[in-house]
């Protein structure tokens, strides 16, 4: 392999794997209200919920989705669950608003706000840091 080709390959690897914001890597979990009978969910179903494609739990109740806008948590969620960059998910939600196809999920600023909202809302789902899980909410395991 010639030197120029090696250099190009190296640059491509840096471009692809030097992910923007890759230093941000909070461990995140999905959380729901204690009254929610579910204990686990498939990755595919989780993705469909946060993309507003799945709007009802299997029992028929409307899902109240909340997006955690803490930069570190939000970035980790986008990359690990949705496999998108934070900007790509932001634009996805804005498209719903501006092309008339729907109202995107509500946004909250941090784990505390998310936990308080989910504790008070039976059919809600959100995501928080793994280490901030407490008695107010229940973890929903991604299978």
């Amino acid at each position: 392999m010639g030197k120029p080709l090696k250099t190009i390959m190296l640059l491509l690897l840096v471009m692809l794997y030097g992910a923007p914001g890759s230093c941000l890597a909070a461990e995140i979990i999905l959380v729901v209200n204690h009254e929610n009978p579910l204990t686990g969910i498939t990755w595919r179903a989780a993705e469909r919920i946060f993309l507003s494609k799945k709007t009802e739990w299997t029992q028929g109740e409307h899902i109240h989705v909340v997006v955690n806008n803490d930069p570190e948590v939000y970035a980790s969620f986008c990359r690990e669950i949705l496999k998108k960059t934070p900007l790509q998910y932001l634009l996805y939600r804005k498209k719903m608003l501006f092309n008339g196809s729907g109202i995107p999920p509500r946004v909250m600023n941090n784990d505390e706000e998310v936990k308080n909202f989910i504790a008070a809302t039976k059919d809600a789902i959100g995501f928080i840091r793994n280490d901030s899980l407490d008695f107010r909410v229940k973890q929903l395991v991604i299978r």
Binding site: K94, K95, G100
Partner: peptide, 9 residues
């Protein structure tokens, strides 16, 4: 096409 007038999208 549905978002052609929203430049930022």
């Amino acid at each position: 096409n549905t978002e052609r007038d929203s430049d930022f999208l």
